[in-house]
Design a protein around this nucleic acid. Structure first.
Lengths: 137, 137
DNA sequence: GTCTTTTATTAGACCAATTCTAAATCTTTG
DNA sequence: CAAAGATTTAGAATTGGTCTAATAAAAGAC
């Protein structure tokens, strides 16, 4: 289920602004910045303000319907795939971002001796390398 | 070898300011923000300016003597352990950050079918959970 | 040593991303 | 419809970080 469907299922109040933002973020593999969300939302609703975009993004994050991704470039990105656990693979050449769905549970892969008594909940992995296109040049 | 020793070994020009910053960052497991580096540096050299701190941090990063860590909280952190590859384990309760040195090479652990033709160079892993202290409360 | 050149430091202006504020506008409910 | 509540808004404010242009310090040449 894609973001906008999940929001409808939850019966979240969908104003025109929220709907447009949710539609922009409805897709299987998106990693947009707030700026990019604003631009795309404005294509459908030119009057929408950045404050609304930030308000909405933060609400969705709080609801668990959007995941904040830091550490890819310097801008925060928003990932609407909160359904399937996954990591990210970034090309150092062109900054393309792909989702990866590893078999292995990396959180569990941390040896007990390295856990320092923590109860380890999750592991977020950022893979980086060169994509096929950037390997040639 | 700790940061300041490596800089001496490289014969990097050590002004009073650079020395103080390098000393602040000399330790086995540090993950300071620019702000924290400035505060600690000012304990030894109160006149030091934030511009110098940022200049120096960026130079050290460029030299490969300091690693930028994004994605832990919202502030960039600087990690002087560029010698041993490692990942980070963060407590969601108290934000404590620990280094972990896993046996496994996570970059290699990404299945070929999930590589999308990339040449995968590295994997940065951020483990999160609750530390022994925060598990009780 | 002094002159010259290079390098480092600085205050403060600047910038970009994000949050805050307080007013205005919708929605819902009685 | 009126009142209460939620949402949106422009623009101000804040924050983390960079840039600029001037000053200071160090290194090299003689």
């Amino acid at each position: 289920m894609v973001l906008i469907e999940r929001l409808r299922a939850r019966q979240w109040r969908l104003s025109a602004q929220r709907r447009v933002i949710a539609e922009v973020l409805s897709g299987p593999s998106l990693h947009l910045t707030a700026e990019e969300v604003t631009q795309r939302a404005r294509a459908a609703l030119p009057e929408i303000s950045v404050a609304t975009v930030y308000n909405t993004l933060n609400e969705l994050v709080g609801m668990g319907e959007l995941r904040e991704i830091d550490g890819i470039g310097r801008l925060r990105r928003y990932d609407p795939n909160t359904v399937q656990p996954h990591h990210h693979l970034v090309c150092v050449g062109c900054d393309r971002i792909l989702d990866v769905f590893p078999e292995e549970d990396f959180a569990g892969a941390l040896e007990p001796s390295e856990r320092h008594g923590f109860e380890v909940h999750r592991a977020d992995v950022l893979f980086s390398g060169r994509c096929p296109g950037c390997r040639e040049g």
